[in-house]
């Protein structure tokens, strides 16, 4: 074997090891989650997870129903996405297609700044400023509810949606826009009939990534959703999300207890939920690419 062949081989293995690391780490995380979650199944059985109440600290009966937590995550994520989509997509269209270079220079740093605000700070803002506003506007007894959480999470998702959608819109070839203009379309018609549809796969990916950020976000929801594990989809009720549950309870729980183990089940469900979300996203993208849209 020549020296060159040898170095090629070494480099190849190095790359292979680097690439395998991610696979290995994901596998290890799964393994770890399942290992830690086993005591729960052994002591209470899997059925206990399907209880309708989450009451892990109780002298009456400890209950570990993930259902209210799942609904909490679901409603907050869904609401936040619904709120973030129009702002994100319209913002991206504005920045990439309509704004003058000067306006773009002004807007973009703000979008980046919004993306960079630590979630604790946002949560603090939500608790002190936003929650009282939500309370006053909707005449509620308390502003700590799913809607306030969703509004804050939308703030976190919007920069993601804007910057990725903007990239997608920018990569739409100039020739499409020219063709549309040459047929007598004005700027707005060109944007909605050609540019946005052509960038749709990128925009959908942006929204999915935004959702990914929202579903995994912990600190903000912990601070503003009130964290009462009520099984509800009502946006004005307090909800407790899966992430907030893990974050809030892991610190004080007795190591190795059933409660400890149940938190790993919450983690597993969260992982499966994001996994399914990703699969749906991939499917949507694939379908979109195969089928022409108009």
């Amino acid at each position: 074997m020549t020296k060159k062949q040898l170095s090629d081989l070494v480099v190849k293995y190095l790359f292979q090891i680097a690439a395998s690391m991610t696979v290995l780490i994901v596998a290890l995380i799964f393994l770890f989650l399942f290992k830690e979650s086993i005591p729960f199944v052994r002591d209470l059985g899997l059925g206990a997870l399907f209880d309708v109440r989450w009451e892990p600290v109780s002298y009456v009966k400890e209950r570990f129903g993930i259902y209210p937590l799942f609904l909490g995550s679901l409603s907050v994520t869904f609401l936040a996405t619904i709120i973030a989509i129009p702002f994100g997509v319209i913002g991206a269209v504005y920045i990439s297609e309509i704004a003058t270079p000067l306006e773009r220079e002004i807007f973009k740093p703000f979008v980046e700044l919004l993306a960079g605000i630590p979630s604790v700070v946002l949560g603090f803002f939500g608790m002190v400023v936003l929650a009282p506003i939500v309370k006053a506007v909707f005449h509620l007894s308390s502003g700590l509810n799913a809607l306030t959480g969703a509004l804050l999470l939308a703030l976190m998702a919007i920069p993601t949606i804007i910057s990725i959608s903007e990239d997608a819109l920018k990569s739409v070839p100039m020739s499409y826009k020219q063709a549309s203009l040459a047929l007598g379309a004005n700027k707005l018609e060109t944007i909605w009939r050609v540019t946005v549809p052509a960038a749709l796969s990128g925009i959908i990916a942006a929204i999915m990534l935004g959702m990914g950020r929202v579903i995994g976000e912990t600190m903000t929801v912990l601070m503003v959703t009130g964290n009462a594990p009520i099984p509800t989809l009502n946006p004005f009720e307090s909800v407790r999300t899966m992430t907030a549950t893990i974050a809030a309870e892991m610190g004080e729980v007795a190591f190795g207890s059933v409660h400890y183990s149940s938190l790993f089940w919450v983690g597993i469900i969260l992982l499966i939920a994001t996994f399914i979300l990703n699969m749906i996203a991939q499917r949507v993208l694939k379908n979109y690419k195969r089928r022409p849209h108009g």
Partner: peptide, 24 residues
């Protein structure tokens, strides 16, 4: 040793409770 009401909002810190009670 009874359970809390399920509707009780659960806050992460003492300060958060002071903050919320002072507003409601």
């Amino acid at each position: 040793e009874k359970d809390y009401s399920v509707r009780a909002r659960r806050l992460a810190s003492n300060s958060a409770i002071v903050e919320s009670v002072s507003k409601d």
